[in-house]
Design a protein around this nucleic acid. Structure first.
Length: 562
RNA sequence: GCUCUUGUAGUUCAAUGGAUAGAACAGAACUCUUCUAAGGUUUUGAUGUAGGUUCGAUUCCUACCAAGAGCACCA
């Protein structure tokens, strides 16, 4: 429909003497204006030296010559907008068509045949898996799914820092505070301990640097043993969290695997004059490229995160030479650092640099109180999930559910609340949530979306029992906003893909659910006396399927009952 | 100090340069003898300040104010 209108509008404006016009068609925010609108007359009023309203009239005259059958009315409004109203039966028929092939509804071909890598989460063994990792995971998983909906094969990658100073801090602390049972909690505590000592204590700092060197050399048996065990239990622990979050990686990269390659790249380009030596370290003089200088290899000859990132990037493209895009998601405190990396890549490997896309997220914090990573009181992903689960438990009190259902609902609803909180706003900013209302299950929330689908599903089950015909013979004379919103799903997915944004999906699903809830309140869907009942059941089915797909994109599961 | 990001109802978020700036929560008033009321209906309330560009600015530019992050051997 949109394409048809677009073509007709282009034809009409070209007749006014505009070459290669760009036509903007949107849905007016206020739907009483119509179903589509264009600002065409406003845009070209200057070029044509005519008042927008006059141009609009001329356009409408042209349009009327081959008036589209589906259009109910065309009007000029405001400063010169052209508003289109579409006939109701068009919407009803479209929804009926969609219902016949609902499975793929919402998919598009923007990335057809492409292979795209998304790197996200990136937790570090020997350190806590904290809220930041949870955020990156939620965002990365959802973006991956949006890109899959656009036809690409997505390679999900996770880059883990299994080597570097943070590991040395933990292992040094373990050596100082030996304990029989080494578990995740203990390792987390040891990192905090080592990290603090590194800041405060000069002697400790020297020892930690020494340990760091030994980890690289792999000659100290004692250290190797702690290292291997610590890495193993860290990775097992991460796997458990990924299961909870319903995300799976195709490829795990480790810093230890890319360190040597990183050094090679830096040394190679040091000879070519891209890098420079400075105070015993090898640095990239970013000022030449509008950035700042950063150390790639430190004065001990060890690669920093920067050099390793180069090695990682090279490895990604060696493994998958056909990648058309490589997306990396990190916290936004790394923005400046990433700009320097990209600037250096742009000099060394411009073809690769073009394909890199860096996205960053802010921090997730409660509206009251402030967290300091220095002091180590970072909230772990596990604790946060547990907090959400206990809030759900409160809500579930007094409901009659068997134990299995109870557990399923608790998990699904807690994760939904959490992921919704993260995905509902545009990526990049901090997310502030009220811990008391963490997921208030009223209003805009993950559980609200789930609840709408659960209710729709209950109706669909009942419709089979009552045997409402699946043959839709009669369409309603007037349609509601529900039908109109249903048709917009594909364009919402496209926009999300183009802008790397998850929140358009969230906003859309909220609007759609709200429209359905309203429909549900105003229409009795199952009524064997009513000839419109088959249509209403059909639309309920379409709604439920879109919600299922939309929530899948967000990484949210729908429980059977709530 | 320098660089970047962000300032929208009491609160948390929306708004491809467009129309009367949308929601949700909180506040006020309704609504279950009807398919799950974690629902629905109605209602009060906002663009940090000062300029500029534009037919039109929450959006673009400049300055100021405020908050956050980053500024060489951490990741």
């Amino acid at each position: 429909m949109k394409e048809k209108l677009g073509k007709a509008l282009i034809k009409a404006i070209e007749k006014q003497g505009i070459e290669n016009p760009t036509v903007n068609i949107e849905h007016p925010e206020d739907n009483t204006f119509g179903d589509f609108s264009t600002n065409l007359a406003l845009v070209y009023s200057k070029q044509l030296n005519l008042a927008p309203k006059i141009i609009a009239e001329k356009i409408i005259e042209e349009l009327k010559k081959d008036l589209l059958g589906e259009v109910k009315s065309i009007e000029i409004a405001g400063p010169g907008f052209i508003n289109f109203k579409i006939k109701d039966d068009f919407f009803a028929n479209q929804v009926l068509d969609i219902s016949k092939n609902i499975k793929d509804f919402g998919k598009n071909d923007l990335d057809k045949g492409k292979k795209i890598m998304v790197e996200y989460t990136d937790p570090n063994p020997f350190k806590i898996f904290h809220i930041g990792h949870l955020m990156a995971n939620t965002i990365g998983e959802s973006l991956s799914r949006i890109i899959e909906f656009s036809g690409a094969k997505v390679v999900r990658a996770c880059y883990q820092g299994d080597i570097g100073l943070h590991v040395a801090k933990t292992i040094w602390a373990v050596l100082k505070n030996r304990q029989e049972n080494i578990n995740i909690k203990y390792l987390g505590d040891m990192y905090v301990f080592g990290s603090n000592k590194y800041e405060e204590d000069e002697i400790a700092k020297k020892e930690i640097i020494e340990v760091n060197k030994k980890i690289f050399e792999k000659l100290d048996k004692e250290i190797n043993k702690i290292y291997d065990f610590g890495k193993k239990i860290s990775l097992e622990y991460f796997d458990e969290i990924y299961k909870k979050l319903d995300s799976k990686f195709d490829n795990f990269f480790f810093e230890s695997e890319v360190a040597d390659d990183g050094i090679k790249i830096v040394r190679e380009f040091l000879k070519k004059g891209i890098f420079e030596e400075s105070e015993g370290a090898i640095v990239f003089p970013g000022e030449k490229y509008g950035e700042h200088t950063r150390v790639f290899i430190n004065s001990q000859g060890l690669p920093t995160y920067e050099a390793k990132e180069l090695g990682l990037t090279q490895k990604k493209f060696k493994l998958y030479p056909k990648l058309s895009e490589s997306i990396v998601i990190t916290a936004n405190e790394q923005n400046a650092y990433f700009k320097v990396i990209l600037a250096s890549l742009n000099v060394m490997y411009p073809e690769i640099a073009k394909k890199m896309k860096h996205l960053s997220h802010g921090i997730l914090r409660p509206s009251s109180g402030k967290m300091s990573s220095r002091k180590g009181n970072i909230v772990s992903a596990d604790d946060l999930i547990a907090e959400f689960e206990s809030l759900v438990e409160e809500k579930l009190k007094g409901r009659e559910l068997d134990k299995k259902e109870y557990e399923e609902i608790k998990k699904a609803v807690a994760i939904a609340g959490l992921k919704f909180t993260i995905l509902r706003q545009s990526i990049g900013g901090d997310i502030i949530y009220d811990p008391l209302k963490a997921v208030s299950f009223e209003g805009d929330s993950g559980p609200y979306l789930q609840y709408a689908v659960v209710r729709a599903n209950a109706i669909l089950i009942k419709s089979q029992e009552v045997e409402i015909s699946k043959n839709v013979k009669i369409l309603p004379e007037t349609v509601s906003i529900l039908e109109k919103l249903i048709l917009r799903f594909p364009e919402v997915v496209e926009r999300s893909r183009k802008e790397y944004s998850t929140h358009y999906i969230v906003t859309y699903l909220i609007e759609l659910s709200s429209a359905f809830n309203s429909y549900y309140a105003n229409n009795q869907i199952i009524n064997s006396e009513d000839s419109l009942s088959p249509y209403r059941v059909m639309i309920t089915k379409v709604f439920a399927e879109i919600m299922k797909n939309g929530l899948w994109i967000l990484g949210i599961k729908v429980p059977e009952k709530m």
